[in-house]
């Protein structure tokens, strides 16, 4: 399949869906609060462009802040665990338990601890919790993934534990770290949106808050407009991270 066909195939499908949706709404006179036509959603997007962009930035900045905090904490903890297997053994069950506990269940506690008048902090912490595990497990697995024969050579040449960490284990962990950050980026956005829903307050006016507010007022076209903005933001972020992943891995592997 050539490149043009690969681009045209999804575009054609999306166009067919939108045209069918538009025609169905018009011909069947579907109420706008139930299912607005794509043209109504586009009009809402155009008129609400500025507040939507501000809301998207609010959600994005909380997600990115969470990602940075999660990355720093997870890498530091994996590094300490990598140097001391006993610490890794101690941390692993706690990390898994926090990961498998739904973030919505932890949210009320975090809201209380951060103060009900600071939902932004609670959202950032909850998104951090969600983004933490993939980076931690990737880093921990990566630090254990060095080629055992290369490890034997390091032992043979009398490498210190520090030399082994810097020259062997950390570079070997790069593909795992990249993969962990890629998954965590998507999860940080999901975590921020879910946390916004749970916080349900006007204190942090991100995209989820706009969805809740518009849904409460039965302004369904605005709900869709916020969803479009959210999907566009998440897709753009994922695309950037995928591009960074390709660049880093191709540098790492020398291809």
């Amino acid at each position: 399949m050539n490149r043009i066909a690969r681009i045209l195939a999804p575009l054609t499908l999306v166009t067919i869906i939108l045209v069918g949706w538009e025609l169905a709404c018009r011909l069947m006179s579907v109420p706008v609060y139930l299912l607005p036509a794509p043209s109504a959603i586009a009009a809402s997007l155009a008129s609400d462009w500025s507040p939507l962009a501000a809301a998207a930035w609010t959600t994005l900045s909380m997600a990115l802040t969470a990602l940075v905090i999660a990355s720093l904490c997870a890498c530091a903890l994996a590094l300490i665990g990598g140097l001391n297997p006993l610490i890794e053994q101690a941390v692993q069950p706690i990390a898994v338990t926090v990961q498998v506990t739904p973030v919505v269940a932890i949210a009320p506690l975090v809201m209380i601890w951060t103060g009900l008048d600071h939902p932004g902090r609670a959202i950032t912490i909850l998104a951090t919790i969600v983004a933490f595990f993939p980076i931690y497990s990737g880093a921990a697995a990566g630090l254990r993934a060095a080629d055992p024969d290369l490890g034997r050579l390091f032992d043979l040449y009398g490498a210190s534990r520090w030399q082994k960490l810097i020259r062997l284990r950390l570079p070997s962990a790069v593909p795992f770290l990249v993969e962990g950050h890629k998954v965590a980026t998507a999860l940080a956005v999901i975590g921020a949106v879910v946390a916004e829903f749970v916080a349900g307050s006007g204190g942090a006016q991100g995209l989820a808050w706009r969805i809740i507010e518009s849904a409460n007022r039965l302004q369904t076209a605005r709900v869709f407009a916020a969803l479009v903005a959210l999907a566009a933001m998440a897709t753009l972020l994922y695309g950037l991270v995928s591009l960074a992943e390709r660049k880093i891995l191709s540098w790492w592997a020398g291809r």
Binding site: D149, L150, L156, V174, A253
Partner: peptide, 11 residues
């Protein structure tokens, strides 16, 4: 020591 595989650091 030389192993069956070249065992070089790819980076």
């Amino acid at each position: 020591l030389v192993f069956q595989a070249p065992t070089l650091a790819p980076w």
